[in-house]
Simulated assay, not measured.
Amino acid sequence: MGNSGGSLTTRSTGELHQLIRAAGFTGIEDTETLAEGWQVTDFADAGRRSLVNLVQSTKTPAVMVSFVDSDVGFVEAVTPDGSSWEGLLNREMAESYEIPLEHFPVEPAVTGALAWSAAAGLTPDEQAIRQTLTGSALFAEELASALLVALGIPDAT
């Protein structure tokens, strides 16, 4: 059985685990520190407004990927001004779960990802973003990592 939790990527100058718990995330695991204050934290579950709550408290953009058995990733990203976008990773596998792909159109996700990246002060790679949102991989986590790189998050691998 694969990963059914998620990963959260944000910047924080405070105690990130405290902020994540206060926002409604549970089962918080290790945090990987990247460059320029970016951090990636795995979690078991998140409430419906957890991502928005976290962004409001930290006043920094964040992107979250929720995994379904390591096969599919649901992407949500929010900026402090309330802008957001959603995407789907591993679309081919998502079809086998009968996830309606039409609920996750690629072009609005690419546009949203570019705007999110710019709001975060990053330099995105549009072609790479599109590839992660349309590509397939054995594990959705591979595409999630590639998405972080495509968004321009420093030291993401």
Rank of each mutant, 00 (worst) to 15 (best):
S4R: 10
S4Y: 08
L8T: 02
L8C: 07
T10E: 05
R11A: 03
T13S: 15
E15C: 12
H17T: 13
Q18I: 12
Q18S: 14
Q18V: 13
I20Y: 01
R21N: 14
F25M: 02
T26C: 09
G27F: 06
I28G: 02
E29Q: 15
D30W: 10
E32H: 08
E32T: 12
L34V: 07
G37I: 03
G37T: 06
F43D: 01
D45H: 15
A46R: 01
G47T: 09
R48M: 12
R49G: 10
L54H: 03
V55A: 03
V55T: 01
K59Q: 15
P61D: 08
P61H: 04
A62D: 05
A62S: 11
F67T: 05
V68P: 05
D69R: 11
D71V: 09
G73A: 07
F74I: 11
V75E: 05
V78A: 07
P80G: 09
D81I: 01
D81F: 00
W85I: 01
G87L: 06
R91I: 08
R91D: 02
M93C: 10
A94G: 07
E95K: 15
E95D: 14
S96Q: 14
Y97I: 08
L101T: 06
E102N: 14
E102L: 13
E102Q: 13
F104P: 06
F104G: 04
P105I: 08
V106C: 10
P108E: 07
G112N: 04
A119L: 09
A119Y: 04
A120K: 05
G121N: 08
Q127Y: 09
Q127I: 12
T132L: 05
T132Y: 06
T134M: 09
G135D: 08
G135A: 14
F139R: 14
A144Y: 02
A146F: 01
L147F: 10
L148V: 06
A150Y: 03
G152V: 04
A156V: 03
